[in-house]
């Protein structure tokens, strides 16, 4: 059996809380698995990540073309909180092709995060199928029957946002974004390559091709995608607010809209945090084109200039 494909999804949103969640409340919020630790770090910015929750799946897998596949095993879900404000649910699975038969359930729990593919579906068709399957739930009335990483993210985020530790009074109205991603080993890829697509206002997809000698750890790949999703959400959210507020007069309404961005989001820009060195070329490429940090600087300058306009 071969495992050259990891797929996943990250949903990112603002924590339903009026201020930065105090450090002491973070482990409680992210304590999803009794007996396991919440891991956290302070520099360059406070962030915490939960232990992994396992969810059992036995369902058809989307394929772009060719033979179908049925996936059997577990996906892993975890939550991440950045700067005490931005909350993420992240789901990942390693698709292991060419499984011969269904095995006793203990086999799958000894390989958490692996989904074994029964049938002849190959990795490229599964990777493309998973990405193409991202927006099918936009079609009203369709019930997804294929692997639904988004639903796992949603239910996890819903549980987190309902936590009693939160006051449920967020300082600004924002929209959740979701990033659906696939990463596969590609013997023909000399360097890390791929495609990041902004599909619509809230959906993004990322297809990564990794050279055969790159370490291929699902948790590392998920960490890269969580970092990208966090920064894409910041860009999307701050950009949207700036677009609405900075176009007219610097009146109290406009300032009221901008204030929370300045107070709560501007300091959360730290690209590459928690990304394994072997995967940093993904960030380098996105910095070159379209230039995430350049756009962020432009947005920040625009907001600051507008606020300065008011005080002079």
């Amino acid at each position: 059996m071969t495992a050259h494909l990891v797929v996943g999804e990250v949903h990112t949103g603002l924590l339903m809380h009026s201020s930065m969640l105090p450090e002491g409340a973070v482990p409680g919020l992210l304590d999803l698995v009794p007996g396991e630790r919440v891991r956290w770090a302070e520099r360059p910015m406070a962030r915490a990540v939960s232990a992994d929750l396992a969810r059992a799946v036995d369902c058809p897998l989307a394929v772009a073309s060719g033979p179908r596949g049925r996936g059997l095993g577990t996906v892993l879900a975890r939550a991440r909180l950045v700067g005490g404000r931005v909350i993420q649910a992240s789901v990942r699975a390693r698709l292991v092709c060419n499984a011969e038969r269904r095995r006793p359930w203990g086999h799958y729990l000894a390989r958490l995060g692996d989904v074994e593919v029964l049938g002849k579906a190959d990795a490229p068709a599964l990777a493309d199928g998973f990405i193409a399957d991202a927006d099918t739930d936009a079609d009203a009335g369709l019930v997804r029957v294929t692997l639904d990483t988004g639903a796992v993210c949603e239910s996890l985020l819903m549980d987190l946002q309902r936590a009693p530790a939160l006051d449920h009074r967020p300082t600004m109205r924002t929209r959740r974004t979701r990033l659906r991603w696939s990463a596969r080993r590609d013997p023909d890829a000399p360097v890390l390559s791929g495609r990041f697509t902004v599909v619509d206002e809230t959906l993004r997809t990322l297809s990564l091709h990794l050279p055969a000698d790159t370490a291929f750890d699902p948790a590392d790949l998920a960490a890269l995608c969580e970092d990208l999703a966090h920064h894409d959400w910041l860009l999307t959210t701050a950009g949207r607010v700036a677009e609405q507020a900075c176009t007219g007069a610097a009146d109290p309404t406009a300032l009221r809209r901008l204030r929370p961005v300045v107070d709560h989001l501007l300091h959360l820009w730290t690209p590459g945090t928690d990304v394994a060195p072997a995967l940093l070329p993904a960030w380098d490429a996105l910095e070159a084109r379209p230039g995430f940090s350049r756009q962020w600087q432009t947005t920040v300058s625009r907001i600051r200039a507008f606020l300065a306009l008011d005080t002079t």
């Binding site: 007996g35 059992a56 799946v57 036995d58 997804r144 029957v145 692997l147 990483t149 639903a151 796992v152």
Partner: peptide, 19 residues
């Protein structure tokens, strides 16, 4: 026992896709 119970993952029904 509570910690072990929290680690139990029941085998999926056919069609279980995470939703």
């Amino acid at each position: 026992a509570g910690m072990v119970a929290a680690r139990m993952v029941a085998p999926p029904e056919e069609g279980g896709n995470g939703s």
